[in-house]
């Protein structure tokens, strides 16, 4: 077992999940609650990392984080071939899952409940924190878990932007690749097992969150609030 890679993966995943949440939620709110020209283009761009080959994402990130890019030249942020680059790669691939899931859940919150809150004297901020977010809670948590799991498993782009330096930038998925290349199968088996277990628990949790609660007969509104899993892949 490659412990440095394991801990680094945890560290990268923790940071990435935080940023996925902090960046993804406002974007999801914006997309679910407003309509603006070019919205479809923006949404498509945000979903692109889901289907682009990891090497393409990696190449873009090399351009974005490498010498000559505004990030490096203007802001003096040099993270290429260090572990924060792995965080960036993980955020980019995890964000679409967070946005998809949260957006579907937020869009499913009955606007009449928000209208009702307005007539009851609530400010827009209070409506979001007391009504909208709590009702979309499960979809948002599902998005965080999915995005975090994707961040943990990120391989291709990470390989390209971190340089695969054992003990410094080598994450667990990359370490597995290395172990197989070096025919250290005992090592690989263990790490594969860990990854599978984490992925299983994550998905199982998401499915628990998405399982419809018992639908009350008397209210028509609560039935609409269920997160529809099919809406995720629309």
């Amino acid at each position: 077992m490659n412990w440095p890679a394991f801990w680094l993966s945890l560290q990268v995943t923790a940071f990435a999940t935080f940023f996925i949440f902090v960046i993804g939620l406002p974007i999801a709110l914006l997309l679910a609650r407003t309509a603006f020209p070019g919205q479809i283009v923006v949404e498509t761009l945000l979903m692109l990392p889901l289907i682009l080959p990891p090497s393409v994402i990696g190449y873009y990130l090399l351009l974005a984080l490498g010498r000559g890019s505004p990030i490096v030249e203007w802001f003096q942020i040099r993270i290429l071939f260090s572990w924060p680059a792995a965080v960036v790669a993980a955020v980019v691939v995890g964000l679409p899952l967070m946005i998809q899931s949260s957006k579907a859940a937020l869009a499913n919150v009955d606007p009449r409940l928000e209208q009702a809150a307005r007539t009851l004297g609530a400010s827009e901020l209070r409506i979001i924190t007391r009504i909208t977010l709590p009702l979309a809670r499960r979809g948002i948590v599902a998005g965080i878990v999915l995005g975090g799991a994707r961040a943990l498993g990120e391989f291709g782009a990470t390989l390209m932007v971190t340089g695969n330096i054992p003990g410094r930038t080598q994450t667990l998925p990359v370490a597995i690749y290395d172990a197989v290349q070096a025919q250290r199968y005992a090592d690989a088996n263990l790490m594969v097992l860990v990854m599978t277990a984490v992925a299983f628990v994550g998905l199982w949790w998401v499915r628990q969150l998405e399982r419809p609660r018992p639908v009350p007969v008397a209210t028509q509104i609560t039935t609409q609030e269920e997160t529809d899993a099919t809406a995720l892949v629309r």
């Binding site: 409940l113 809150a117 007539t119 509104i221 609030e225």
Partner: peptide, 14 residues
Amino acid sequence: RVGYVFQHYALFPH
């Protein structure tokens, strides 16, 4: 602050 009672109650389910 005009009280409004909706057809489908619009109670906050949570």
